[in-house]
Amino acid sequence: MNASIAPRDFELLSAHLDGQLAPADTQALLARLGAEPHLREALQRLTQLRSLLRRAPQRRLPRSFMLTPQQAGQRSGVAAWSGFNFASAIAALTLIFVLATDFTVNGLPAIPTARSAEPLLMMAEAPQAESYATDSAPSGGAANPADSTLFESTPADETSLADEIPTLKEPPAPTLTAWVAYNAPVLEALLASLAVIAGLLAWHHRRR
């Protein structure tokens, strides 16, 4: 149908029909329309088409699209849940792990991190203290009276020994917990960074 009309001419006719041509272009096109019958014919068909499309019936509304409070509320709830995506889950789990680690190692989350190194120091001292206790303690109560003089000590010494005994009897073993305790500040910083990154990813994902 439009084989005889160049695409550029068809575009000019289309824009002219809607009054979208610049005045100079309109003048040039009007001059051509006066001289070229096939352009006039094309413009007439185009005018018919536009008229036809404008007569296309509008459909009656099948129902109202007003939002109910439930719709608005439920949708935002769904959106919030869908925003709780993989990255959000990672952030939450990482935070839980950080808190749990801190709690199991230090007893309370608020304990200063410097104290978390104490068990390791105790562990380092433990073998020495244990050998001292083993070497110096007599076997059972059948001690040589002569030897007992060796153990005569001042009340002050007894007090310091008594203080040391509980610690010496239960030296902490070099476990994973101790390692975690030693590296707690670094681990916490690392995991907190991961949580922040995951949280930012989740926020970015929701914005998209």
Binding site: F10, Q20, Q44, R45, L46, Q48, L49
Partner: peptide
Amino acid sequence: KSRLARARSRMQECLQGFAELLPDKFRLTG
């Protein structure tokens, strides 16, 4: 503008295929 012109051109060609189905007053004839 360009998209509309191309769309109109294609609509013309397509509707011409339905010319026999359409009432006379709706046929696209120059």
